[in-house]
Computed example of a mutant assay.
Amino acid sequence: MDSITSSIAVIRTRIRDTVEGIYRVWREWIGRYPFIAKVYHLFSWLSLLVLVLSLILIEESRTMLVQYLWTFYVLLQFWLLSRSKTVTWKQVSLFVLSGILLVIPLTNGTMQGLHLIFGGRTNDTWSEEIYKLLPLGLYLFFSRKATSLSLSDYVVLGAAPGIGFQFMEELSRRLVQSNYGVSFLGGKTLHWEFFDLFPGYFEESFIPTMMNVTHPVHSAMIALGIGIAFRYAKRLSRWAYAFPVLLLLWAILNHAAWNGQNRLPEWVLTLHEWTGEGYRTESFSWSCWLLGCSSTISICIESVTVFRFWRVRPSSTH
Rank of each mutant, 00 (worst) to 15 (best):
L197S: 11
I207C: 09
L197M: 10
F198K: 07
H215C: 11
H215T: 08
I228E: 02
D196Q: 14
H218M: 02
F206K: 04
I226F: 00
T209W: 09
G225I: 01
M221H: 15
P199S: 10
F194K: 13
T209H: 11
F206R: 02
V217P: 07
T214E: 14
G225A: 05
T209R: 07
M221W: 07
V213T: 05
G225W: 00
V213Q: 05
M210Q: 13
M221I: 12
G200E: 10
I228Y: 02
P216H: 02
G225N: 01
M210A: 10
H218A: 02
G200W: 09
I226R: 00
S205N: 05
F198S: 05
M211Y: 04
F194C: 15
E203H: 08
T214V: 03
E204T: 09
D196K: 12
Y201T: 06
F198Q: 06
D196T: 12
P199I: 12
I222L: 08
T214Y: 11
H218E: 08
I222P: 00
F194P: 07
A223P: 00
V217G: 06
I228M: 03
E204V: 09
P216F: 01
M211I: 03
P216W: 04
V213I: 03
G200I: 10
T209V: 15
F195H: 08
F202T: 15
I226C: 03
I207T: 07
Y201K: 15
G225C: 02
I222M: 04
M221T: 09
G200P: 13
D196A: 07
P199G: 13
A220F: 00
M221D: 11
S219Y: 01
F194Q: 13
V217N: 09
P216M: 02
V213H: 04
A220L: 08
S205M: 05
F198R: 12
I228V: 09
I222A: 04
S205C: 15
F202M: 11
H215V: 14
H215P: 03
T214L: 05
P199Q: 15
F202H: 12
L224H: 01
I228F: 03
N212L: 07
F202N: 06
T209C: 11
G227E: 00
P199F: 13
G225V: 06
M210N: 08
I226T: 00
V217H: 04
G200N: 12
Y201A: 15
P216D: 11
E203Y: 09
P216T: 03
P199Y: 08
L224G: 03
D196V: 10
P199D: 05
A220E: 09
S205A: 06
F202A: 14
P208I: 05
M211A: 04
E203T: 14
F195C: 09
